[in-house]
């Protein structure tokens, strides 16, 4: 039963990832990525990581992808922008790199087949919000606090990068043609 669920989720994740990579429109690409993230959240549940699965849905599929969609629709990029690489050497290099990576990974994993780790019988507390939170607020308290500083820096950086320069009349004219004031 667990194997069947794993194969369904893995197949869905790979198919939607391929759809994302081959799509030319940014919006359909973003939708496929959301589907991939939902499938990955299912895999996290299968691995008893309940808090991480919820965070995956809320933070990744919810917040980050909504930000992506927001920017895609804000920029309103012309459809022909999303074309593939014209440089075939780059394409071939990318394909060789990716296929080689998978091949090396599979060979080394299949060769180590005799020493498979068995699925550990965890305590019933494994991966719950309480257990992860306890770890986060005791052993990993300093990284947790540093993460908040990182988020603050990201907020300030994003505002400074994306804000419109009001003191530059030339640029303002270019953004909104014919708009006065």
């Amino acid at each position: 039963m667990q194997l069947l669920i794993f194969y369904i989720l893995a197949f869905g994740a790979v198919i939607s990832a391929l759809l994302m990579v081959t799509s030319k429109k940014p919006v359909s690409s973003a939708m496929s990525l959301i589907a991939t993230m939902v499938f990955l959240a299912g895999l996290y549940v299968l691995l008893d990581a309940h808090l991480i699965a919820a965070l995956q849905l809320i933070v990744y599929a919810g917040a980050i992808m909504v930000l992506f969609l927001f920017v895609i629709m804000l920029l309103n990029v012309d459809e022909k922008e999303g074309r593939m690489a014209g440089n075939t050497i780059l394409l071939q290099f990318g394909a060789i790199l990716a296929i080689g990576l998978v091949f090396i990974m599979m060979v080394s994993l299949v060769k180590s087949g005799g020493t498979l780790l068995v699925f550990g019988e965890g305590a019933d507390q494994f991966g719950t919000t309480k257990a992860v939170g306890k770890l986060l607020f005791t052993e990993y308290l300093l990284p947790f606090e540093i993460a908040s500083v990182l988020l603050l820096a990201a907020i300030v950086g994003a505002v400074i990068l994306a804000k419109r320069r009001i003191d530059d009349p030339d640029q303002k004219e270019r953004i909104i043609p014919g708009h006065k004031g």
Partner: peptide
């Protein structure tokens, strides 16, 4: 999945994708 992402970085020309 990592390789599919790497292929996308090499083949797509749209910065958002």
């Amino acid at each position: 999945l990592f390789s599919i992402g790497a292929i996308g970085v090499f083949t797509q020309r749209n910065a958002l994708i």
